[in-house]
Design a protein around this nucleic acid. Sequence first.
DNA 1: CTAAGTGCTAGAGTGTGCTCGAGGTCAAGC
DNA 2: GCTTGACCTCGAGCACACTCTAGCACTTAG
Lengths: 124, 124
Amino acid sequence: MMIGEVAEKSGFSVHTLRYYEKIGLLPTSHRDGGGRRSYDDDVLRWLEFLSRLKDLGMPIRDRVLYARLRAEGDSTIEARRRLLQTYRDALAKRVISLTETLDVLDAKIASYDTTGTPLKGPRK
Amino acid sequence: MMIGEVAEKSGFSVHTLRYYEKIGLLPTSHRDGGGRRSYDDDVLRWLEFLSRLKDLGMPIRDRVLYARLRAEGDSTIEARRRLLQTYRDALAKRVISLTETLDVLDAKIASYDTTGTPLKGPRK
DNA sequence: CTAAGTGCTAGAGTGTGCTCGAGGTCAAGC
DNA sequence: GCTTGACCTCGAGCACACTCTAGCACTTAG
């Protein structure tokens, strides 16, 4: 696969993929005869996982750290586990908080719908 | 209340509060004799709500828009409702997606924890 | 009376995470 | 053999949301 296809399948732009490689989120690409990057399917699973880490709010420097540990092999499994555990716990809290926010919004929207005036009691 | 107290109670910095006023997230403050901003308790509830909007990912532009509509009074209730509804729906999807991510992380962490079969599992 | 503390403005600076542009190479179809 | 389009590098630029600085004014405790 060339970079354009990876971009299309992963949802990251070509620019972003090259940027990710530069900062160490993606391993140094294998190149074809013409110097172009050549990828195999594994990269798509890795990008999907990276995308989840990004989405849950892991900053890029920790994603890079995780990628570096991963590249170092099995000896870093414990470090990776601890890193993921930290973000997992934060995420669990965040899901709870966002669920509360969802309730707050629903209440607010309901107050707009029923009374036409926010934060007042129920209509008689 | 002066700005420092609002900062302490709301969790926003003094700098941020002045910035929020400048861009229209907070109404133009009343000033005391010495030209200092003076707030009443309402501002804390408003800041808490703004904080939720921020937390759910509403960009500052739309928070400003919401604040502007709110300042314009009851005639904008329908517009505000629509705005909140949009973000509520996105948030509902996001909560689902983050819950999935939580499962993904838990599975991954569990695979790291299985010391029984040393690392023959999927290595993403 | 004075020093510490808090406040003020305008505007510049910062960190994050991309995003884009200039100027070029390379492979394939017509 | 030329055009088209995807790729390359390097580095600058951008959007967002603050965050901080300089230089000054005001208030309050001792």
